[in-house]
Design a protein around this nucleic acid. Sequence first.
DNA 1: CGAGATATAGTCGGTTCCGACTATTAGGGA
DNA 2: TCCCTAATAGTCGGAACCGACTATATCTCG
Lengths: 213, 213
Amino acid sequence: MLMARRKVSNPLALAVLGLLQEQSMHPYEMASTLRERHKDGSFKVNSGSLYDTVEALVRHGWIEPVETARDGRRPERTVYAPTELGQAEFVRWVDELVRTPIAEYPKFLAAVSYLGALGPDGAADALTERAGHLVQRIEQTQAVLDETVGSGAVPRLFMIEVECALHAWQAELDWTRRTVAEIGDGRLAWPRVERTEQGWTWSAADDGNGSER
Amino acid sequence: MLMARRKVSNPLALAVLGLLQEQSMHPYEMASTLRERHKDGSFKVNSGSLYDTVEALVRHGWIEPVETARDGRRPERTVYAPTELGQAEFVRWVDELVRTPIAEYPKFLAAVSYLGALGPDGAADALTERAGHLVQRIEQTQAVLDETVGSGAVPRLFMIEVECALHAWQAELDWTRRTVAEIGDGRLAWPRVERTEQGWTWSAADDGNGSER
DNA sequence: CGAGATATAGTCGGTTCCGACTATTAGGGA
DNA sequence: TCCCTAATAGTCGGAACCGACTATATCTCG
């Protein structure tokens, strides 16, 4: 069996489906609407991927073209609307994504796995710079939230994912700062690694005890 | 200009480079070593991607084959070692990844963007189930940490990324529980959306005031 | 009023990524 | 000793993804 193995998995497809719940649109309009509503922090909106995604949704019968209009002599725009299947699957998909956490692999985690390679000073320096960037990002995002939800222009529920992201970044910032502090006062020890015939040996920087792996 | 546009970007390449800092290996051994050391929570270790990644690293001159051994009549294994360039770039890459946060798009964020589609009860239910899964994941991961670092078998620095992940999951769990609570007591209102000729109108569930977007 | 900038709308080709599959060998209980 | 399973080692085809590019239309500012 080689066709339609699993559903469309790109989250951008979820965004498309979500927008089409409200109103029929052509792809370019989807992209600009997502940007207007600041949903481009939750979905990677790339024009190439967008058109691919729309085609995939058509193939799966979740959406369908309803109109092919042209304005003046601009290129033709194909307008899409969800099918009944698409409307049902949208809700099921959101439910599944919320209900079941899946493994993800943020690049920061990958980098932190090899934090040792930077040495204590290098690591503290890099983490400190990251903390600064995170502060900026958090402030900017908070400002957007204040302008929209804070002023009553948009109901809070419609931007709840921004609060979620903000919470996650704040947690990352806390961890980053805490780790800088722990490097500074030696609570996070930097073992010295040596190669021996037995394998690897490390000695703790503070007490000189060695262990083997 | 169409070749070698940017560096290898798959984090798995970082893992490969990291392992080869210690010791020459063949790809299969990389995969099993990563699993042994519980690094497979930070890197998506997929055999297909692994072989592609190793080839890409060779193309860029970051690693090179050093030996082609065969054991008994098993298929030949090609053993790789980093070049000097690869050793230098490894550190630079870790530094860059730690220093500069980049935009990422976790699927949970995508789903939360459309939390409204589940309705207050559906959303609370789904979030509650997620919280349960997160608790399990956190407990299991904590247990692994206790067995390894807790028992002194491995220095803390070598599993620091596990602490980082744990911190992030805990934050997600906190947000999830808080949101369930806010749905429950009405602090997170569910506006009723209606379509009008003007566009969209929503009325707050609690006070009946409408606003326009 | 002309020129450059920006907005509109989308195409295209190449790389990356992944899951499913293949094939051989070692281990271990009936 | 024989079969079944697990471990070893990797291949392959297709889907997803992305960035760079094209082309027209409108805006704007000296």
